[in-house]
């Protein structure tokens, strides 16, 4: 009798297992497309970084020479750190201005103010434009002589504020980053708003009964529960600001003009890998090495950050 039951369950288990074989097919389509069009070309291109290149022609295998040159040979190392600094600034400003502002605006909308739907739409609208369009549009607006911004400033009597926004190295990079914030604000608001809305109503009610309000409520009750959305935005902003390319390219071209003041790592990579606009010489080996370094940097930092956040979450 007992043996019979046993064989029964074994059989059942076996059948279950057999049936579950099909499940392994589930990730195959995604893995196939992803592997073929993302992983394979990347791996193929990584090998470029171990070769010497003359123009667009592969030469001898040189091992880690390109990596060494990237960090020790002038002007390449200078350009690397210059661009790296700009990426750091890109990240910091986006975190403070775009995400900070978005958090606050999401908080306001969460207060159920009138017109919330329309407001959300307005904030999100820029995100629908192509980055190329955003770049061109703002280039026109920021034009020092005919652009709308300087015209508005002089109408407001702020003549002295007028500037060649994109031509002055002191303002060019900041201007681009702020345009990026303009572009990304709406998306960040929606993410934070989702975070606010996922806070259980009972919790807020209970806290209010305990007399918490305003900022106390925000800091004590909401903040910990907002951590997941803050985390997501931080990671996305980090990746995005260290790969900042399209907007800078659309507004300033591939030389990081003026005077390398808007150079970022991805623009620098593009310049090395594809040459400048008028057919400047390329340095594919060096460019590939740069891309690999950039990739590893982003990977490691993201992993560290996620790990740290996970630990914190457990502690809380």
């Amino acid at each position: 009798m007992q043996t019979m039951i046993q064989t029964e369950t074994v059989k059942q288990k076996k059948r279950k297992k057999q049936k579950r074989w099909g499940i392994h097919l589930f990730p195959i389509p995604a893995l196939f497309i992803y592997g073929l069009f993302i992983v394979y070309p990347l791996v193929a291109a990584i090998t470029y970084s171990f070769y010497d290149w003359k123009g667009i022609q592969k030469q001898a295998f040189v091992g880690l020479e390109n990596y060494k040159n990237l960090f020790t040979l002038e002007p390449f190392s200078g350009m690397f750190w210059n661009a790296f600094g700009h990426n750091v600034l890109y990240f910091v400003v986006q975190m403070v201005v775009q995400n900070g502002l978005a958090f606050f605006l999401a908080f306001i909308i969460f207060q159920k103010i009138r017109g919330a739907e329309l407001l959300k739409m307005a904030y999100f609208l820029p995100r629908l434009l192509s980055v190329i369009v955003v770049g061109f549009l703002w280039k026109l607006i920021l034009n020092p002589n005919f652009g709308a911004l300087n015209v508005i400033l002089s109408k407001l009597g702020l003549e002295s504020w007028k500037k060649a926004w994109l031509g002055d190295p002191d303002t060019a990079l900041m201007t681009i980053i702020l345009v990026n914030c303009w572009f990304g604000l709406g998306f960040a608001i929606l993410i934070f708003l989702a975070g606010f809305q996922s806070i259980p109503k009972e919790l807020i009610e209970a806290a209010r009964l305990d007399g918490a309000k305003g900022l106390t409520m925000l800091r004590r009750i909401m903040m910990p529960l907002m951590m997941p959305s803050i985390m997501i935005m931080t990671v996305l902003t980090f990746i995005q600001s260290f790969e900042a390319f399209e907007l800078v390219y659309a507004m300033q071209g591939s030389q990081g003009e003026p005077y390398r003041s808007t150079d970022t790592l991805a623009v620098y990579f593009y310049r090395l890998a594809f040459g400048g606009a008028t057919g400047d010489s390329t340095a594919i080996g060096l460019g590939s090495a740069l891309a690999v370094v950039l990739f590893l940097f982003i990977c490691v930092f993201t992993a560290l950050f996620l790990n740290y956040m996970k630990k914190k979450e457990v502690e809380m």
């Binding site: 992803y34 069009f37 993302i38 992983v39 394979y40 070309p41 990347l42 193929a44 291109a45 990584i46 990746i239 790969e243 390319f245 991805a266 990579f269 593009y270 890998a273 460019g287 590939s288 891309a291 690999v292 950039l294 990739f295 982003i298 990977c299 993201t302």
Partner: peptide, 13 residues
């Protein structure tokens, strides 16, 4: 994949 600078792979692609 979110962190891969895919422009690097444009020639193999």
């Amino acid at each position: 994949g979110m962190m891969i600078p895919i422009k690097l792979g444009i020639v193999p692609l």
